[in-house]
Design a protein around this nucleic acid. Sequence first.
DNA 1: CCACGGATTGGCT
DNA 2: GCCAATCCGTGGA
Length: 201
Amino acid sequence: MNHMSILDSKFFEGDVHIIAESLLGKIFVRKLNGNILSGKIVEVEVYDGLTDEASHAFNGKTKRNEVMFKQGGLLYVYFTYGMHFCANVVTGNVDDPKAVLLRGIEPLKGIELMSINRYGKKSFTQKEFINLTNGPAKLCKAFGIERFENGMDLTGETIFILDSPKLSKSEIITSTRIGVNKSINLPWRYYIKNNPFVSKK
DNA sequence: CCACGGATTGGCT
DNA sequence: GCCAATCCGTGGA
């Protein structure tokens, strides 16, 4: 895979943990109304429907989670707490419901539009800058990801991920996942050390 | 059919 | 640190 090329379907077929760690440092891109929104992925979590009680797919396929059961390389977006959307990268093959939750992104392009999406205004304080995308629901709001984006093809023209050099082990922190009440001891959260857009230490 | 609670966030104490 | 907001998927009766 060449530097700064778009990740293709091959990338999303492999082991979900390898993919999760590999996604750190890569550039998530979304075209929205003729604008480019992009940012560096800095925090992710693995959800594995086959062995993981915290996964939406653990109890089998439903209308809500059906995208997780499809071929890797799609975006799985879910609605939660009556007001928030969160986005996952689906990995693996059909009926192998694994996904990587995007929890933190460092904004690169289209930052004014992200601010409009988040706060309804173009300008922002330093604190608001960090707050644009340092959480799974925050980054969806900033990137304009909602119900319509569920199931979108990540190897298409609208939403895709640009490759970047693999990070060294010393740059990556592994920890337990945030906000789950089941399988709480699985160390399936990965984030970039010292990056301010990581949701929690 | 109904009750529960969620892969969160932001505001208030 | 605590808790309300606000919808709807899910599971049990």
